[in-house]
Structures are given as C-alpha cells and as structure tokens.
C-alpha cells in the first residue's frame, strides 16, 4: 500500500489522545483507590483532557485531508451496521465527547461522589464518565484497527495482532505523554505513568514484534495463478495497459526500495521501543520533564515511521495485476 500521510497522522494522533485519556483515567482510578495521591482537577485532569482532545482533533483534521469530499463527511456515519470506518467515524466524536465532558467536569469541579465503598473508596461522577469514556476509547481503538484487520485479503493486517498493536501502541504513546505531562503538572505521578508507559511499551514491543515475525512468514493466498486463473509456474506480466501509471499503481505501491523499507522498520523498532524506554527510565529517575517529553516525541516520530511501515508492508493482491508497466 502507498502510505497516506493523512491516515498516518490520523491514526497516530488519535492513538496518543486515546492513550493519554486512558492514562488520566487510570491515574484517577488509582487515586480513587488511594494508591496514588489525588491530583488537582483543573491543572492536571482538565489540562490533560484538553491535550488529549487536541490530539483527537488533530487526528480528525488530518483525516479530512484523506477525503475527496470532506463536505460530505457527515454521510460517513450512516453505515455503522456494516462498515468499521463508519463505526470509527461515530466512535471518534463519542470519545471526544467523553474526553471533553471528563475534562469539563474536572475543570468545573462538578464531581459529586456518587458511591462510597465500605473501605472508604469514593466513586466520583467523573470516574464514571471516565470509565464510560475509557470503554469508548477501546471501542475506537477496535474500530480503527478493524478498518485494517477486516480486509481479509490484506494478510499483513487481517489478524488480531493488528488490534492489539493499535491498542498497545496508542496507549503506550499516551502514557509516555502522560509521564511527560505529569512532570510539569503532577510530579507525584511521574513514576506511575513512566512505569506504566514502560510496561505498555514493552508489551507493544512484544506484540508488534510478533506481528513482524508473523508477517515475514505469510503465505500469500493469492498468486498470479489465482489472479488470472492460469496454472503454470512461470507467468510473467508483460504489460498492464497503462504505461503512465494509474490509480492502481499510485494507491497500492509505496515505490520505495526493499532497503528503504527495512531501514524504516529498524528505525521505528528503535524509536518506538528502546529509546523511549531508556528516556523514560532516566527521566523518571531524575524527574526530568525535558527528557520525558523527548521520550514522547521520539516515540511519536517512531510511531509515524511505524505507521508508514504498517501501510507499506501490506501487499494488496491487486498489485499482482500491476507488476509491469
């Protein structure tokens, strides 16, 4: 596939937003259970939600560049029964709504206690909203990932690891951002977020590596033989009937060399996983916000590369028909 930058930014930006929101909610949950000190509603949760919301909006804006007719984008909400893309289009504003409400509640301090356990743990309304929001976040992750995983003949994508990767990579980047964010707003939580960021990044490393290993061993179901229905072990395309190229050659071929592809793979494997982990551990040890911010930025750049690679690596079976000019 030819990686489209609009989609790369869309998926990575909303991933950060979703992950950051999950981090905020996790922080509040831990605080509610009194594992962590409570944080300032305005400075931390409202601000954090705003940042998450900005990432989500950034993703939304970037998605517009992907559309031929963005003015009709509202129509995309209509086919949620069958289309994961339609579901994503619905889930994204729902997530944004909850993030907004969650942040607003913290900002306005509308946070009545709705339930207290016998152990004294207080459940605030914001926690409930956060829980529903978190569920929406997971649904959004699922929708986004399923857009890709649901195309069964894109064999690099069509497996559960795609969903796991989307969840873990988005969450990891969100927690890394949360670690950096907390160093400026809630130093008590630096270690909490950093450790979680490291744990999730490690998990993401495992699942992403698993998908790389899997994809390296794919046996493609489609071949030039099935594509044209001729049995012979030597079939070569001689012409595709469009020497100047076509939509089919522009949309589905990355046009880069195998070496370039490999370099991008190693680049993102470094930038998304070990480098941020090192930066996170060193940043949390000496409370260095700049280092933690660097960890996020490195990881985000890495994710851009990861997403580029995600698309580039996917071999669309239509390419079989467009081998030779």
């Amino acid at each position: 596939m030819h990686p489209a930058f609009s989609v790369i930014f869309l998926t990575t930006l909303i991933g950060v937003g979703q992950g950051l929101f999950l981090a905020l909610f996790t922080g509040q949950s831990y605080a509610a259970a009194q594992f962590l000190p409570a944080q300032n509603g305005t400075g931390f949760f409202a601000m954090g939600s705003l940042i998450a919301l900005l990432f989500l909006i950034g993703g939304l804006i970037s998605s517009i560049f992907h559309l031929g007719h963005p003015e009709r984008a509202w129509r995309a909400a209509t086919k949620w029964r069958t289309s994961w893309l339609s579901r994503e289009v619905l889930a994204l504003p729902v997530v944004m709504f909850f993030v907004f409400v969650y942040g607003l509640m913290h900002y306005m301090n509308w946070d009545m206690v709705i339930f207290v356990t016998s152990t004294g743990v207080k459940f605030n309304l914001s926690l409930l909203v956060g829980a529903v929001g978190a569920a929406a976040v997971f649904i959004l992750f699922l929708c986004t990932a399923m857009i890709y995983a649901a195309i069964k003949f894109l064999q690099e994508w069509s497996n559960p690891l795609t969903i796991v990767n989307y969840i873990l990579l988005g969450t990891a980047s969100g927690f890394t951002l949360a670690a950096a964010f907390s160093s400026y707003t809630a130093p008590d939580l630096i270690r909490f977020f950093s450790v979680w960021a490291i744990i999730i990044t490690v998990m993401a490393f495992v699942s992403r590596s698993a998908s790389l290993i899997r994809n390296a061993r794919i046996k493609y179901k489609s071949s030039i033989q099935t594509a044209i229905g001729v049995r012979h072990n030597q079939i070569v395309q001689n012409a595709q009937g469009a020497m100047g190229g076509s939509y089919n050659t522009r949309e589905y071929f990355h046009g880069k060399t195998a070496i370039f592809l490999k370099s991008i793979k190693w680049l993102f494997m470094m930038l998304v996983f070990p480098v941020p982990i090192i930066l996170l551990s060193s940043g949390m040890d000496d409370n260095n916000g700049a280092v933690l911010l660097a960890a996020f930025m490195v990881q985000y750049v890495g994710l851009l590369a990861e997403r580029w690679f995600f698309f580039a690596q996917a071999n669309h079976p239509q390419n079989i028909y467009y081998q030779t000019v």
Binding site: M1, H66, L67, G68, H69, P70, R72, A73, R75, A76, S83, L85, I147, I151, F153, L154, S222, S246, Y247, N248, E251, Y252, H316, P317, Q318, N319, Y321, Y322
Partner: peptide
C-alpha cells in the same frame, strides 16, 4: 454520496475501482 475515502478500493482485491483525481470520487 461518495466522500472519496477510497476505502472501498482497498477492500477490492481485484483493483477494479479507480479514484477520479479531479472529481474526487
């Protein structure tokens, strides 16, 4: 109704759909 998201073409294993670069559908 087409918003030009190209997703349908991704979902076609045959490469049968073409996006019109100027009509954007």
């Amino acid at each position: 109704k087409c918003i030009g998201c190209k997703y349908c073409s991704w979902a076609c294993p045959y490469g049968a759909r073409e996006f019109d670069e100027h009509q954007k559908v």
